[in-house]
Amino acid sequence: MSNKVVLELKDVTKDYKKTNIIRKMNLQVEDGEFLVMLGPSGCGKSTTLRMIAGLEVPSTGKILIDGKDSQKISSLERNIAMVFQDYALYPNMTVYQNLEYSLKVHKVKKEERQKRLEEILETLNLSDYRDRLPGQLSGGQKQRVALGRGMVKHSKIFLLDEPLSNIDVQLREKARDEIQALHEKNQQTIIYVTHDQLEAMALGDRIAIINDGIIQMIDTPDNIYNHPTNLFVAQFIGTPRINTLDVIYDQGELFFDDEVVLSNSKRLAEMNLTSKRLCLGIRPEHVIVKKEKTNLLYLSAQIEMIVDYGRYQQLTLSLKNNQAIKAITTTNNNFSSGESVYFSFMEEKILLFDYETKDNLEN
């Protein structure tokens, strides 16, 4: 990946009537980067993508492409391909013609056009539908055509808005792999919008987590998952969802429901904590569950539910104060629903958040 910034958003806002959708967004995307915008429905990610594409104008701020104001350059200079959520296919053109159209506009030679089109048709399982009109296709087939039309263009910037949402699971994985392979081969700058965290983690060099029109965190998948900047990011990423517990910090120890969950911790000492009340976050795979209490830091619980996924079991543990946490364990443990057990946390995996601001205390 180059260090050249190909796309930049500077203090970009977007208002619809009196509703503020995007709030002073600042973002830099490097040449050849695969950036995923991830967030809940209505957070502003698709609106941001449409502004980058030039389909909508920012209320304030600037969008720069190769250092030039995107509002002052032509669509050909932008060199952007976009896959829309609603397909946007030409209804009077066949699948093949829809795929070919942008290549003709950009005067790609006939031999090269045919080569690219055959590859895309095969990749997306569309060869048998090449002569059909969009009205003769299912929703998933239309979405594959829209995806193929963006992929075949080989543009400098490729924007994708929920491109796999209507494709069935098996083809979705194949299409996702092909998007990744296309990126590695052509080194396009790709900005990909999704609400699917698995897609985001699998594809992105970096992920921008957006909520209420604000980028909450932008970083690598590893840092997003293991070092979330705040509680929203921690809770939005991860399946099953991260466990959260209200804890009390006092004289170097963390207490949950008057029992010690962390003591003599170097991490706690280095954090110079002053807050008494904190929020502890622990992912289900970092909860240790045992049938017997092996040290004082193991707390008692009862297994409320077991879901067996084959590779692992997901346990729902009922705690004394009517709270519940989830734990993921291996399948060779012989736990039973209703059984009394003991649990503890992997100390190095505990996340601590300020109770009021919800910010990660170690960021």
Score class of each variant (00 low, 15 high):
residue 244 T to H: 15
residue 275 S to P: 07
residue 208 A to G: 09
residue 289 V to W: 13
residue 208 A to D: 05
residue 228 P to G: 14
residue 275 S to V: 05
residue 243 N to L: 06
residue 243 N to H: 03
residue 276 K to L: 00
residue 215 I to D: 05
residue 203 L to Y: 04
residue 289 V to M: 13
residue 274 T to N: 11
residue 278 L to Y: 02
residue 237 I to A: 09
residue 271 M to H: 00
residue 188 Q to R: 01
residue 205 D to E: 09
residue 213 G to V: 12
residue 196 D to A: 09
residue 208 A to P: 07
residue 295 N to S: 10
residue 218 I to H: 01
residue 271 M to S: 04
residue 260 V to I: 15
residue 192 Y to F: 11
residue 242 I to W: 09
residue 277 R to P: 00
residue 216 Q to R: 12
residue 202 A to E: 01
residue 191 I to M: 07
residue 260 V to C: 13
residue 212 D to F: 02
residue 236 F to C: 10
residue 285 E to L: 10
residue 269 A to I: 00
residue 215 I to K: 03
residue 199 E to S: 08
residue 278 L to I: 08
residue 192 Y to W: 06
residue 261 V to R: 02
residue 241 R to G: 08
residue 282 I to Y: 08
residue 222 D to F: 15
residue 221 P to Y: 07
residue 288 I to D: 09
residue 194 T to D: 10
residue 280 L to R: 09
residue 215 I to S: 07
residue 188 Q to S: 15
residue 276 K to Y: 01
residue 290 K to P: 15
residue 235 Q to K: 08
residue 238 G to C: 12
residue 271 M to P: 02
residue 202 A to H: 00
residue 269 A to G: 00
residue 220 T to C: 07
residue 265 S to E: 01
residue 210 I to P: 01
residue 288 I to A: 07
residue 250 D to S: 14
residue 220 T to S: 15
residue 196 D to G: 10
residue 261 V to G: 04
residue 193 V to L: 10
